[in-house]
Simulated assay, not measured.
Amino acid sequence: MLLDPTAAGLFPIAPTPFTPDGRIDDASVDTLIARYLEAGATGITVLGIMGEAPKLEPEESLAITARFIAGFGKLPVIVGVSAPGLAAMRWLARAAMDKGAAGVMIAPPPSLRTDDQITGYYRQAIEAIGADIPFVIQDYPLTLTVQMTPKVIRQIVEENPSCVMLKHEDWPGLEKISALRAFQREGSMRPISILTGNGGLFLDFEMERGADGAMTGYAFPEMLADVVRLSKAGRREEAHDLFDAHLPLLRYEQQQGVGLAVRKYVLMKRGFIASDAQRKPGSALTPAARAEVDYLLARLAARDARARLAA
């Protein structure tokens, strides 16, 4: 199944589970797959920034990709293939597609500054991996420091027919979603899927601005799936009520430097993974931080029973 512009729903960004000694935990990968499917995932993204992809050897990256593809069956698996060099990007992209991936995600390198540099990079990247591979633009200026205007995104989409999706995680970025959807309505940009990141921090209004769903890794994927579903059904108050209940934990998880540690800790407490270990170099929560997360989970349990599993 190849990725196309109709993709929607929840595509969790999968963390890479490790044992405390730094080995990949295959059993936890299988548990993650099962729990994401139970949560309502309509696809998944592996080897993203929060998946600790740079810490993996090429063979490990491909093995994890293959395991998720097998576990998700007919549902689409997107593989992050961003790399400093185009040769490495091409190898992983082609190898992942040979394993059955639905498409790949490409982030711009932090060195890009001008619009011409950004659009030129994507032309070169697609020439390297092949125009037959559907790809996702990752727009994450807070981490990557590359600023893409709506017009630049439109140019990338129009110049590269294999572009089928934008992973939108600009901040603030609601107006960018509106601008892109306006381009589509006026006919100056063909339709693409827009899935949003930022840990789900703005998902409530992103859906109302025209997003098709979420591609992020918050430790309660069920909430993300529910907000997407309720928003699409026009049940605005229910969507916002559920989102608001989770907002304190969402905010806490978005702290720079410890966000992945928080996410893995909660996923471990919920039984998604066996250990919250990160492969070195990595961060870890202090006892005080763990106590704060536990407090937030206990408060959340009063409004969402699914948090009682972690209390």
Rank of each mutant, 00 (worst) to 15 (best):
181 R>W: 03
252 Y>P: 02
225 A>W: 13
225 A>T: 11
217 G>W: 06
176 K>V: 15
238 E>G: 01
173 G>Y: 14
198 N>C: 10
256 Q>N: 06
241 D>C: 09
173 G>Q: 03
208 E>I: 05
230 L>D: 06
230 L>I: 07
197 G>Q: 03
178 S>Q: 11
204 D>L: 14
196 T>H: 01
245 A>E: 02
200 G>T: 08
171 W>A: 04
215 M>P: 01
239 A>V: 06
178 S>H: 02
205 F>Y: 13
214 A>L: 05
192 I>E: 07
249 L>M: 13
195 L>N: 04
188 S>C: 11
193 S>V: 06
255 Q>R: 14
248 P>K: 12
245 A>C: 06
190 R>T: 09
218 Y>D: 01
203 L>W: 10
216 T>S: 01
196 T>K: 02
175 E>C: 04
222 E>T: 14
204 D>K: 09
246 H>M: 12
253 E>S: 15
254 Q>F: 10
187 G>E: 10
213 G>A: 02
224 L>I: 11
174 L>F: 13
228 V>A: 00
246 H>T: 03
199 G>P: 12
245 A>I: 02
243 F>V: 05
253 E>I: 05
216 T>H: 09
205 F>V: 10
222 E>A: 07
214 A>K: 08
187 G>F: 10
190 R>G: 08
206 E>H: 05
207 M>V: 05
222 E>S: 03
212 D>V: 07
240 H>P: 02
231 S>P: 02
231 S>D: 04
229 R>F: 09
213 G>L: 08
223 M>Q: 02
184 Q>M: 15
245 A>F: 03
251 R>F: 11
188 S>N: 03
209 R>G: 00
216 T>G: 00
238 E>W: 07
190 R>W: 11
247 L>C: 02
202 F>Q: 13
186 E>Q: 14
219 A>C: 12
204 D>T: 01
199 G>F: 13
215 M>Q: 10
234 G>H: 15
217 G>K: 08
202 F>E: 13
195 L>H: 05
223 M>V: 15
199 G>L: 11
249 L>Y: 10
204 D>W: 13
256 Q>R: 06
232 K>M: 07
204 D>A: 15
200 G>S: 02
216 T>C: 08
173 G>V: 14
184 Q>W: 06
248 P>D: 09
215 M>H: 03
250 L>G: 00
245 A>D: 08
221 P>C: 03
212 D>M: 08
187 G>R: 09
186 E>F: 13
184 Q>D: 03
199 G>T: 11
241 D>I: 06
236 R>K: 15
175 E>S: 11
230 L>N: 03
216 T>W: 03
183 F>Q: 08
254 Q>V: 04
191 P>Y: 14
175 E>A: 14
185 R>N: 07
217 G>T: 06
240 H>N: 12
180 L>F: 09
190 R>Q: 09
233 A>D: 14
219 A>Y: 05
247 L>D: 05
207 M>L: 08
182 A>K: 11
192 I>D: 04
248 P>L: 12
179 A>E: 12
218 Y>C: 00
248 P>N: 11
231 S>V: 04
219 A>N: 00
256 Q>P: 01
